[in-house]
Every structure is written in C-alpha cells, then in structure tokens.
C-alpha cells in the first residue's frame, strides 16, 4: 500500500533522486560506531538536532495552553502542568530538553574542535555553528522568563542588568529587550514573540545552512 502510494507520487514527481540526495549516502568507516566504538563522538551533532526537534514539537504543544500575559502566565503554566493529562511530561520534555540541547551542542563543539574539523574548507560552517550556539542561548534566555515565577523574573532582571553593563549601548539594549523601563507586561510578550517566532525562524535558517554545507563538503577525514 505504502509502496504503491510512493510509486504513484514518484512516477509523477520523480522524488527518488531528491530522497537519495538527502538521506542515501555512505557513512565513512571512521565516523561509524559499528567499526570503531570511539566514533560515537560523531553522533553529538545529530543528537543536538534530535533534541531540537523534540523542543520544537513539545513547544508547539505547550503553546496550546500557555498565555504570555503577566496575569495569566503562571496560572496557565500551573494548569497545563498539574491539570492537563501528561502536562508534566510535555513540560518536562521542554524543560530538560532545553538543558540537554546545550550539553549536546557543547559536546558536538568539542568533537569538531578536537578533530580539527573546523579547518579549511569548513571555516564557514564553524561560523554558522557559533551563530546557532548564540541563537540557542537566546532561546534559553527568553524561554526562562515565560513561566513568570520568581526564578524566571529575577533571572531576567539579572540578565538584563548584564546587558545594561555593556558600554555605550547598554541602557538602550536593556530598554529595547525589556520593552520599556519596567520588566513586566511588555517584557513577557516580547520574550514570548522572540522565543516562539524570531529565534526559531533564525534557527531553522541557520540549521539549513549548517546541514547544506555538511552535505556539500562531506564529513572531515579521519585523524
């Protein structure tokens, strides 16, 4: 049945070459843990992406219940975690996954660094990777405020104080990020918009570039 549907589409759109291009390529021996167990270090990039997919999915579902408003934010988080079936699991996935992304990304960065994979001709991909790193930190920072509890609020207060400490543009940057002088209603809506629209959009673009360059340049050679 599935094969028939696939054949029907393939006959009309010739999708097999596209599929080959994306997924059907050999894994070199030196990055295959089946050959050398130590090659598991090459899995961290893929694991980062896997956790990112979980973050996007669980985040989409959390947005069904969450309200980015200072009156209702905490109550809606409390409700979705304690009243909705499996809410504690879905929120838990997003909460722990956020930390796991950073861990996996850090390990991936270490692997790239110690295998020297960032060297010519892959410098650009390192640069894109660093941009992804900053976007991920931004996602972590903006997401941390959303539950609107004491920890969230004061973490953001401290974070914005740090932004304010930047010479010359500091005060401007803080006011822009907080959406005014007060860390309150406008800060929360702003952080929500950045967390669910702006940064994920940037992230998808950067990930696309990251993966395109890997396919174009291939995995770096063995040590």
């Amino acid at each position: 049945m599935l094969q028939k549907i696939y054949d029907w589409v393939d006959e009309r759109l010739d999708i097999t070459p596209m599929w080959r291009d994306i997924a059907d390529h050999e894994v070199p021996e030196h990055v295959n843990p089946a050959h050398h167990f130590s090659a598991f270090v090459y899995c961290f990039g893929g694991l980062t992406f896997f956790v990112t997919v979980i973050q996007i999915l669980s985040g989409m579902f959390l947005a069904m219940y969450y309200v980015p408003d200072i009156v209702n934010a905490y109550e809606s988080v409390y409700y979705l975690q304690n009243e909705v079936t499996f809410g504690v699991i879905v929120r838990g996935m997003h909460h722990w996954g956020a930390s796991l992304v950073i861990v996996m990304m850090f390990l991936h960065t270490l692997r790239v660094f110690f295998t020297g994979s960032y060297k010519k001709p892959r410098e650009l991909n390192w640069v894109v990777g660093v941009l992804i790193f900053f976007v991920m930190l931004g996602l972590g920072f903006t997401g941390y405020l959303l539950p609107w509890d004491m920890k969230a609020y004061f973490a953001t207060v401290v974070g914005l104080e740090i932004a304010e400490a930047v010479p010359v543009v500091g005060t401007f940057a803080k006011t822009l990020l907080a959406g005014g002088e007060i860390i309150g209603a406008q800060t929360l809506t702003r952080f929500y918009a950045i967390h669910v629209f702006f940064l994920p959009g940037a992230l998808l673009g950067l990930l696309g570039a990251h993966f395109y360059m890997i396919r174009k340049q291939g995995i770096s050679g063995p040590l």
Binding site: L57, S58, F61, T85, F86, G87, I89, V90
Partner: peptide, 15 residues
C-alpha cells in the same frame, strides 16, 4: 513514546 504524551496532552480538553 515521544509523541504519545504530546498527543494526549493536546486531546485533553476533548476527553
């Protein structure tokens, strides 16, 4: 195992 909690989470109001 990953998707089932999310699906049940979304279906909750209907159930």
């Amino acid at each position: 195992g990953m998707l089932m909690p999310m699906a049940r989470f979304a279906l909750d109001p209907a159930l």
